[in-house]
Amino acid sequence: MLDDRARMEAAKKEKVEQILAEFQLQEEDLKKVMRRMQKEMDRGLRLETHEEASVKMLPTYVRSTPEGSEVGDFLSLDLGGTNFRVMLVKVGEGEEGQWSVKTKHQMYSIPEDAMTGTAEMLFDYISECISDFLDKHQMKHKKLPLGFTFSFPVRHEDIDKGILLNWTKGFKASGAEGNNVVGLLRDAIKRRGDFEMDVVAMVNDTVATMISCYYEDHQCEVGMIVGTGCNACYMEEMQNVELVEGDEGRMCVNTEWGAFGDSGELDEFLLEYDRLVDESSANPGQQLYEKLIGGKYMGELVRLVLLRLVDENLLFHGEASEQLRTRGAFETRFVSQVESDTGDRKQIYNILSTLGLRPSTTDCDIVRRACESVSTRAAHMCSAGLAGVINRMRESRSEDVMRITVGVDGSVYKLHPSFKERFHASVRRLTPSCEITFIESEEGSGRGAALVSAVACKKACMLGQ
């Protein structure tokens, strides 16, 4: 009897593995994704193909990295998701002549009506938060230079001027797309009239992360975010950046690689679950690469896999709870928690219980395998993109072996128990001629924006502006 049951459990697990095998990517698959990513990057950089390229390769006008001589107080704003952060950054000489960066910050959550109302409502709310922060720190009387981390696709015309191309991540505030974001912020500050600010720089969160990590390690020339969304930036040779005049030196390019796949480059790798996630998203047909990796989508992918296993009578005796059938019910943090389970399955059992399920031991094991399959594919897909960037940098610099540091931020990278190990191992397999160091950014977005502002202020002083 026991043997029969054991055989049935083994057969069930084997069927589960057959279904989950769809998520496995072979090294040849990853090399294919990497080569296609490089081709799209090239198209994004070139003037004649930029418009139709899915990977936009947006110039950021960040050319210099901090040298350690900029000092002063800077205000930093960070808008990239449902939370908005205001930070005071003091850049100065530390002990023994070292450079020191001290920060104080406060988080504000953005109400739904500000995210989806008008641009005026959104930026009025942001300036209200700045006003509140300055009151708390008794700094209303000071006109501070301000660095703005704005983590949406922007076409820069200068370091302090950028046109919002399109909202992502659930934002829909009308009247912002096609307009200068810094102008919208300046107008809102003017409307309030109770404080003055000098907006000197606007950067993407990947750029802010790279600059913040450069402060720790001067070989950091790539910034990457794996959180709600997924994106990367890197220092490109100016001669390859056709959208900006000049051939000397390097400029940081914001790849906006989340949109890779929007022209069909990933079609052969998309599964039924991916198509369902895409169809029910706020932007169907867009940001397809990001939807395979980002935390906004990972939990939902797992939920759809679990429903398939229920329908195949391989999980929960073929019956799903009402909660499990509800879109968004299986949160991405559950994926991390399930994979963090120590082996007694308590954590998995508790999560499934909150979803109205009474799982068996085998159910718990199957749910864990589903989570591992989805998150491992995410790590491997992400590795193909980064390997594409790094191999490109090595080739354009004609280096036999390139040493490089990548600064990384984002909740999936930082909080998932195995993502970074799987990701690092896969990147290294795909970049055999590179020695890569990964560092995690601390308060990256805010500190990085302030350091970019410090560079901009120093330049302005040198130019006598």
Rank of each mutant, 00 (worst) to 15 (best):
L2V: 14
D4M: 08
R5K: 13
R7Q: 12
M8D: 05
E9G: 10
A11G: 14
A11L: 10
K12Q: 13
K15T: 08
V16D: 08
V16N: 09
V16W: 11
I19S: 13
L20Q: 07
L20M: 08
A21L: 10
Q26G: 14
Q26A: 10
E28R: 09
E28Y: 09
D29L: 15
D29I: 06
D29G: 07
D29E: 12
K31I: 09
K32Q: 12
Q38L: 11
Q38F: 06
D42L: 11
L47G: 10
T49I: 08
H50F: 06
H50Q: 14
K56V: 03
P59K: 11
T60D: 03
P66Y: 13
E67T: 15
G72P: 01
G72M: 06
D78A: 01
N83Q: 05
N83D: 04
N83P: 03
R85G: 03
V91T: 07
G94F: 07
Q98P: 03
K102T: 11
T103G: 08
Q106P: 02
Q106Y: 08
P111L: 05
E112L: 11
D113G: 13
D113E: 12
A114P: 08
A114K: 14
M115I: 13
M115Q: 08
G117N: 11
T118R: 04
T118D: 05
T118K: 02
M121Y: 06
L122N: 00
F123Y: 00
Y125T: 03
I126Y: 05
S127L: 02
C129N: 02
C129K: 08
I130Q: 00
D135F: 05
K136P: 03
K142Q: 07
K142C: 07
K142I: 04
L144D: 02
L146T: 05
F148P: 01
T149A: 14
F152Y: 02
F152E: 02
P153E: 05
V154C: 05
R155Y: 07
D160W: 01
G162I: 03
L164F: 01
L164S: 04
L165I: 07
L165Y: 03
T168Q: 03
F171M: 02
F171H: 02
K172D: 02
A173D: 00
S174G: 01
G175R: 02
A176H: 00
N179G: 04
N180P: 05
L184R: 00
L184V: 01
L184E: 01
R186E: 03
R191L: 03
E196T: 02
E196M: 05
M197H: 00
D198S: 07
V200T: 06
M202H: 01
V203R: 02
N204D: 03
N204V: 07
V207F: 01
V207N: 00
A208V: 02
T209Y: 03
T209H: 09
Y214D: 15
Y215R: 15
E216V: 15
E216G: 09
D217P: 09
H218T: 05
V222F: 04
T228S: 02
G229I: 05
C230T: 15
N231C: 02
C233V: 05
V241M: 15
G246P: 09
E248R: 07
G249P: 05
G249R: 05
V253A: 04
E256N: 02
W257I: 07
W257G: 00
G258W: 03
G258R: 00
G258K: 08
D262F: 11
D262Y: 12
S263A: 10
G264H: 00
F269S: 05
L270Y: 08
L270T: 13
R275V: 14
L276A: 13
V277A: 06
D278Q: 04
E279A: 14
Q286E: 04
Q287E: 04
L288N: 11
L288G: 14
L288K: 11
E290M: 03
G294H: 04
G294Y: 01
G294D: 00
G295S: 01
Y297S: 10
R303P: 04
L304S: 08
V305S: 15
L309V: 15
V310T: 03
V310F: 09
D311G: 14
D311E: 15
L315H: 03
L315S: 13
F316R: 07
E319M: 10
A320R: 14
S321I: 13
S321L: 13
E322F: 11
E322H: 13
T326N: 06
A329S: 15
F330M: 13
E331F: 06
S336M: 00
V338N: 05
V338M: 10
D341C: 08
D341E: 11
G343R: 05
I351N: 08
S353N: 13
L355A: 10
P359Y: 11
T362H: 11
C364D: 09
C364G: 08
R368A: 10
A370C: 06
C371G: 10
E372H: 13
S373P: 04
S375W: 01
S375N: 13
S375K: 01
S375I: 01
T376V: 13
R377D: 01
A378G: 08
A378N: 04
A379V: 06
A379I: 07
C382V: 13
A384P: 02
A384H: 02
A387S: 05
G388N: 05
I390S: 06
N391Q: 09
R392P: 02
R394H: 11
E395D: 13
S396M: 12
R397D: 05
S398R: 11
D400R: 13
V401H: 12
R403C: 13
R403K: 09
I404R: 06
S411P: 07
V412L: 08
V412R: 01
V412T: 09
V412C: 05
K414E: 10
H416T: 12
H416Y: 07
S418C: 14
E421R: 11
F423E: 10
H424F: 07
A425T: 09
V427F: 01
L430G: 04
C434Q: 04
C434Y: 10
I436E: 02
I436G: 02
T437H: 05
T437D: 08
F438W: 07
I439H: 09
I439M: 15
I439A: 11
E440K: 13
S441R: 05
S441D: 10
E442W: 14
G448A: 00
G448S: 03
A454M: 14
C457I: 07
C457L: 08
K459T: 14
M462H: 13
M462I: 11
G464Q: 12
G464E: 13
Q465S: 09
